[in-house]
Amino acid sequence: MGLAHRATLRKGQTLLVLGGSGRTGSAAIQLGKALGATVIATARNEDKARFCRLQGADHVIDLSEHDLTQTVLELSGGHGADVIYDTVGGETYEQATRAVSRGGRVLLVGFASGKWGQPDPQHLLFNDYSVSGALALFRSDTERDLTQEALSAFLRDGSITPPVTETYGFDDVPAAIASRSGGAVGQAVVTVTRGAVPQL
Rank of each mutant, 00 (worst) to 15 (best):
M1G: 00
L3D: 00
H5K: 11
H5P: 07
A7G: 07
T8F: 08
L9G: 03
K11C: 09
Q13K: 03
Q13M: 10
V17W: 02
G19W: 05
G19C: 10
G22H: 12
T24R: 07
S26H: 11
L31I: 08
K33Y: 01
G36W: 12
I40N: 09
A41Q: 12
R44H: 09
K48N: 10
K48E: 02
A49N: 13
R53Y: 11
R53S: 11
G56W: 14
I61T: 08
D62Y: 15
D62V: 05
V72P: 06
G78N: 15
I84Q: 06
G89H: 13
Q95M: 14
A99V: 03
A99K: 06
R102A: 10
G104W: 14
F111Q: 11
G114K: 00
W116I: 01
W116K: 00
P119K: 01
P119A: 00
Y129S: 05
S130M: 08
S130G: 03
S130T: 04
S132N: 00
A134I: 06
A134Y: 03
L135E: 14
L135N: 06
L137I: 04
E143C: 08
D145L: 12
D145C: 03
E149W: 02
L151K: 05
L155C: 07
D157L: 03
S159P: 12
T161F: 00
P162K: 04
P162D: 01
P163Y: 04
P174A: 12
G183I: 00
Q187R: 14
V190A: 03
A196N: 02
